[in-house]
Amino acid sequence: MTQPLVKVENLKKHFPIKGGLLGKQVGAVKAVDGVSFFINKGETLGLVGESGCGKSTTGRMLLRLLEPSDGKIYFEGQDITELSTGEMRKMRREMQMVFQDPFASLNPRHTVEKILEEPLIVHGVKDKAERKRRVKELLEVVGLNSWHAKRYPHQFSGGQRQRIGIARALAVNPKLIIADEPVSALDVSIQSQVLNLLQDLQKEFDLTYLFIAHDLGVVRHISDRVGVMYLGNIVELADSEELYDEPMHPYTQALLSAVPIPDVEHKKDRVILQGDVPSPSNPPKGCPFHTRCPQAFDTCATVKPVLQEAKPGHYVACHLYE
């Protein structure tokens, strides 16, 4: 088997909670609590889950914008958690990020040209004419006009800004792009345009995506494989079609049953989950989902299930399939 582009092992992020007079650590928010997955070259791995489940934190840790508390991240076989800040900075050439909010992620005082030029300057493209040429090219690649370069971000619509964000990520020819809810802030009509753009770019530049979203429809459209996260854990990971057709984990089943189907005749048994997501600062013992799981039994409350291959290529962390 060929080496995956990215391999993540038991990645954790615990944010300390400080309290008391002396600022002693009194607890931790377990935002990501032992996540493992891999992404093959050229594929798109979708990561879904409700807000606060740790999907964005996972994405940011891959770029080490957040330092992992524990675990390993291998990029092309190299453990990037061991790299120094300086080495990591060079590594960022290979991995880029597209942000959720196209309004906040572009510096309002810079022109588009400056925004797109900056990654080139930082990664050592010295020739000014070469940079200008590349900026024009990037704008055209993402479907904008080259004369947009002199404008400021506030003169663009949300969809156009997101294209600028994508162009910025492409500027240094990365291999991996982490897209953190890239279309969540956009109108539905614009979402498909941006998704198509991302897919076209993937083909053209042989990109690998980690696509983070909470919209199951969007993720299905773009992903080859999908991972479902709940309370800092991946509970199910499978090929996109397989996951949507035959979800195994009760949480995935509940999520999918909540997707509206545009058919008035369609009657479907909806799995309604009771209660709220438990606090990640005090996650339940055993399976993180057992407090709300309609099929939970005794073992679930005591033993935490591990992610196992239940069917070829279909991983699930649930005691029902052991």
Partner: peptide
């Protein structure tokens, strides 16, 4: 602000982020 995170993600040095 997120554009500072974006600047870090690009691989900018602290000094450049501060000044630019």
């Amino acid at each position: 602000e997120e554009y500072i995170t974006a600047a870090k993600a690009i691989g900018m040095k602290d000094s450049r982020i501060l000044l630019h």
